[in-house]
């Protein structure tokens, strides 16, 4: 019974985490400009990764593995949003304007995320 509950809980975490990773990947390809793409990518490595880690923690039970996963999770929890923030900040400093709906902004519509600009 407990095994069933553990499995159900961990699978719920794993499935929702994987869903967010897929959503993030999809958004990274489909979104129109740099900032919206970054927004999508941010989902992947913050909530997506953390949910998957949580699912793994439930699977591992009370063990050393869980402690290590917890540390990895904490590290990701702080570093991923920070790196997303740093990238967005750098782009804004570099003068890349967000694209506005009616096309008023100087967005880069054909922009591949791999540093097309220079």
């Amino acid at each position: 019974m407990t095994a069933l509950v553990t499995d159900a809980v961990s699978w719920a975490f794993l499935a929702s985490g994987s869903f967010l990773v897929v959503v993030g990947a999809l958004g990274l390809i489909r979104m129109p400009d740099f900032y919206t793409r970054l927004h999508a990518a941010g989902i992947t490595d913050t909530l997506g990764a953390d949910l998957i880690l949580m699912g793994l923690m439930v699977q591992a039970g009370f063990s050393l593995v869980t402690v290590k996963l917890l540390l990895i999770g904490a590290f990701l929890f702080f570093t991923s949003p920070t790196s997303t923030h740093a990238i967005a900040n750098a782009a804004l400093t570099a003068g890349l304007n967000p694209r506005i709906a009616d096309g008023a902004g100087a967005g880069t519509d054909s922009a591949a995320p791999e540093g097309d600009g220079k």
Partner: peptide, 9 residues
């Protein structure tokens, strides 16, 4: 933000 997180890490 970067400075605070860096100090923490």
């Amino acid at each position: 933000v970067l400075r605070v997180v860096t100090k923490m890490l």
